[in-house]
């Protein structure tokens, strides 16, 4: 079988990915992360094999214990005989573009285990708590046959909720004493949670944090009262068994279709990304006089970016009219 747009080496790589060879997965991740010329074809070739993994997003403020919780979850799932892939996103410096990727330091106890694959990504200026290509990288990992995929966001503030589109099950992790009344997770991030986790539950203020979270859920619209609030101590795995069974419950619910959550939001997000990228690429390569005219108009202040972008995307009113005329001719009306 041949796949369009892939070299022989690319096709061999796809075969190896689907066989579950970690080195092949890693190489393909690099292509996708950097959006090379091979990325789209590689993703297309593995698309059919996606949709099997349980994807779990872990988000929350810096210092809540996300990486340590990921480490503890890896332990639980490995004991249950599942293979675990981890995607850990750390922030890039807005000044230099560089990054220190250190999430995996907390996962060191699994670093020998062939049943665990940890890959770090720099956010590269992308906002929302993830890297721009995280959604597609998850597809690769899914196709490579990893049972559980844990996605750890950068330490998130109040609006880094992108993981909601990407992971089937969203854990929002908080910890006692991170500011008055869990202010770091008051809006936005709280709303995407399937499960709220209060980590470091051995600390004195933990019960208060749990109570505040529960009180906050009661103020929300109906339905959110059902969101469980669980306490964990990730360093000792206390509460991890309960968390894992709650995740399983949520996963089962979603697969039964009780919850409306499905893969479609993630697919929609990926589609939006793909459209945006294609538009950018085409515009950069486009040397037409129309674009030049728009640039001149922007420079002189005759038009604004939103209007110019609309003109580019819609091709202006005239193009739309032409399209409408063509359609009429086709349908013979």
């Amino acid at each position: 079988m041949t796949t369009a747009g892939l070299s022989e080496a690319g096709q061999r790589l796809v075969e190896k990915i689907l066989e579950g060879q970690p080195a092949a997965l890693s190489r393909a991740m690099t292509e996708v992360e950097n959006e090379t010329g091979h990325a789209a074809a590689l993703l297309a070739a593995v698309q059919k094999a996606t949709g099997r993994a349980v994807t779990i997003g872990i988000t929350g403020p810096p210092g809540a214990g996300k990486s340590t919780l990921v480490n503890a979850l890896i332990g639980e799932y490995r004991q249950a005989g599942k293979t675990v892939g981890v995607i850990a996103v750390d922030p890039s410096s807005p000044l230099s573009g560089g990054a220190i990727l250190g999430d995996r330091i907390r996962m060191a106890e699994h670093s020998h285990d062939p049943g665990v694959f940890v890959r770090s990504f720099a956010s590269r200026g992308h906002l929302g708590g993830l890297s721009r290509t995280a959604g597609r990288v998850i597809d690769l990992m899914d196709a490579a046959g990893w049972d559980i995929i844990l996605i750890e966001t950068v330490g998130a503030g109040q609006s880094e909720v992108e993981v909601a589109d990407i992971a089937a099950i969203k854990l929002v992790v908080s910890a006692p004493g991170l500011g008055d009344d869990i202010q770091a997770i008051k809006a936005g991030i709280l709303e995407i949670a399937d499960i709220l986790v209060v980590n470091k539950c051995d600390q004195p203020l933990a019960e208060q944090t749990k109570r505040s979270l529960k009180a906050m859920l009661k103020l929300k619209q109906s339905g959110s009262q059902d969101i469980p609030v669980l306490g964990t101590v990730a360093t000792t795995s206390e509460g991890l068994a309960e968390l894992v069974s709650e995740i399983a419950l949520q996963d089962e619910k979603q697969r039964r279709g009780d919850n409306l959550v499905d893969r479609k939001p993630r697919i929609r997000r990926n589609l939006a990304e793909a459209v945006g990228q294609l538009a950018k690429d085409r515009l950069r390569q486009n040397q037409s006089a129309d674009i030049d005219a728009l640039i001149v108009a922007l420079e002189s202040g005759e038009t604004d970016y939103l209007a110019a972008a609309e003109a580019v995307l819609d091709g202006g009113q005239t193009n739309r009219e032409i399209a409408a005329t063509r359609l009429e001719k086709k349908t013979g009306s």
Binding site: S92, S93, S96, G98, I100, L101, G102, I105, A108
Partner: peptide, 14 residues
């Protein structure tokens, strides 16, 4: 830290 400041992506281990 110097590599980060020069724009490189650094995986750091203990």
């Amino acid at each position: 830290a110097a590599l980060r400041d020069a724009g490189l992506e650094v995986v750091y281990t203990a």
